[in-house]
Write a protein that binds this DNA or RNA. Structure first.
Lengths: 113, 113
DNA sequence: ACTTTATATAGTATTATTTATATATTCTAT
DNA sequence: ATAGAATATATAAATAATACTATATAAAGT
């Protein structure tokens, strides 16, 4: 059983923003990649096989929304997760993945389009 | 410590979709409202003070993405959460709310715009 | 049959997000 | 001072999400 979740009305906007921000495949991948510590942009770029401005753009969005932070060293920008909590959301999604693979949840609907 | 979250590459699109879908204030409110059981559209509408087509649209989006389901009875459509798991995500967000209120996390960044 | 109620669906305009491309900045090494 | 590397920023184009208005459907009551 799940206890009554009460998100305060003031916080709903923030909650939506966080979820929406993480609701992008490449950003999820970036967050996952940052899980084991800070990484410079170039490395993220290589790892995810994306062009540099795209990576910087996603990082900026996540920076503005408090999801990542960075530390500059010379010409390198080392990005890392602003917070361990972000991983909780991802681990929640990996639970979802399990449920679906066990057939306990279906994302597809009969009247899907 | 959080254990290594591993979302399979195949699932990342789905994960993003779920998060993005929940990343809307009114949809969060709807999900919260459905927490204590199925509700007909009209009641959701009254509760959230929205016009009917908006509610139906959000419900349809969430239906297509496996987040809600419904049961028709006469002219009434009773919507409910497709899954208890959805609440876990929200409860995760209510944890976030706490962290922020305790000052352990800031959503605002110096160079925010 | 006709009307009302509850809800869905369609179409559309507006706005936001995403991606791509091009350029600027800043640091480092020469 | 110049050049190269790493990254940011600006801008434009393409795409998607949102909210609104109007209309359709289907069941229930008269």
């Amino acid at each position: 059983m799940t206890s009554k979740t009460k998100i305060s009305p003031d916080f709903i906007q923030n909650a939506a923003r966080i979820l929406k921000t993480l609701g992008h495949p490449q950003r999820i991948k970036i967050v996952e990649y940052l899980e084991d510590g800070e990484k410079p942009v170039s490395q993220i770029q290589r790892n995810l096989d994306l062009i540099q401005p795209i990576v910087s753009q996603h990082l900026k969005i996540m920076l503005d929304r408090g999801i990542v932070k960075y530390r500059q060293e010379g010409t390198r920008y080392y990005y890392s997760l602003a917070n361990d909590f972000i991983l909780k959301i991802l681990s929640c999604m990996s639970d979802a993945q399990e449920m679906i693979s066990r057939g306990e949840w279906s994302l597809e609907n009969f009247n899907n389009n």
